[in-house]
């Protein structure tokens, strides 16, 4: 079964070549993948690989130049009006910088109930109860529902962003570098939270990231992108344990590692 299917997604931008000759830049080149219900697909790559453009196309924040997108059995490539609204109710996005994606002048309660207003959905119970329940689900103190984003730390603000994405009970959540800006200790907690929420609610994730070690903790399958193309797509264990593509191998080799000898000694001491 497939929840989301991207087929040959391509995005070309107008660019200017030498001597002002009109040229086209292909940011994403015939990318195809599918995401099953309850599954996490990670899209990894370095800057300029096209991973964020891919994320924007599958979130329908940008139209593809070519290719098609199917969601929940429906072709949504050119969806407008009611069909697009249905899509938006099923697909939500969590962005990298929580502070720039949360309105600083709105209370958490208003932020968390806004998706319901846009979708025309009545909350279970009062708006306040709905906001408080969402805050509890993401590990925030529900008594803080009338505070403003600036009154929260970066990790807490990202939890608000996650709670907002869950407000409409989406089938798919797209995380665009959602944990990249967080400190390591906070990052570990937010990854933990995302895994728990997925277990509880059964939605799918498309997880866009450049940090391979993070991706490995959360993804069931991984697509590695380079220069606009998917160079390798497979199960997490295979891509990390037995990478087939040369570029994937280069990328994995470049990840900085703690001196393995020191790390082993520390862990042995912890266990002893």
């Amino acid at each position: 079964m497939t929840l989301l299917r991207a087929t040959g997604l391509t995005k070309r931008f107008a660019a200017r070549g030498p001597l002002g000759v009109k040229a086209e830049f292909t940011a994403v080149d015939r990318v195809s993948f599918d995401v099953g219900p309850g599954e996490t697909l990670a899209v990894v790559g370095e800057s300029g690989s096209g991973k964020s453009t891919t994320a924007r196309m599958i979130a329908k924040l940008m139209d593809p130049t070519e290719g098609s997108l199917e969601f929940d059995g429906e072709d949504v490539t050119r969806a407008k009006g009611a069909a697009l609204a249905r899509f938006r109710a099923g697909v939500q996005v969590v962005f990298q910088d929580p502070f720039s994606s949360l309105n600083p002048r709105h209370t958490v309660e208003r932020i968390l109930t806004a998706p319901l207003v846009y979708q025309g959905i009545a909350p279970n119970g009062s708006r306040r109860a709905h906001a408080k329940e969402l805050m509890e689900r993401v590990g925030l103190n529900p008594d803080h529902s009338l505070r403003y984003p600036a009154q929260f730390s970066g990790g807490q603000a990202q939890r608000i962003g996650i709670a907002r994405a869950l407000a409409v009970n989406p089938k798919l959540v797209i995380c665009d570098e959602a944990v990249s800006a967080l400190d390591v200790s906070v990052q570990a907690q937010v990854i933990e939270l995302l895994r728990r929420l997925q277990r509880e609610s059964g939605f799918s994730f498309v997880f866009i990231a450049h940090d391979l070690a993070v991706v490995r903790q959360i993804a069931h399958r991984v697509a590695v992108m380079s220069k606009g193309r998917i160079v390798e797509l497979g199960d997490t264990a295979q891509v990390f344990g037995d990478p087939r593509d040369e570029y994937t191998r280069t990328l994995l080799a470049a990840v900085p590692r703690i001196n393995p000898e020191w790390d082993r000694r520390r862990r042995e001491r912890v266990q002893a």
């Binding site: 390591v184 200790s185 990052q187 570990a188 990854i191 391979l212 070690a213 993070v214 490995r216 903790q217 990390f240 994995l252 990840v255 590692r257 703690i258 393995p260 790390d263 520390r266 912890v270």
Partner: peptide
């Protein structure tokens, strides 16, 4: 120790 425990290890 907490910092060291927080970092995901690729290996």
């Amino acid at each position: 120790r907490m910092l060291l425990d927080s970092i995901p290890r690729i290996d």
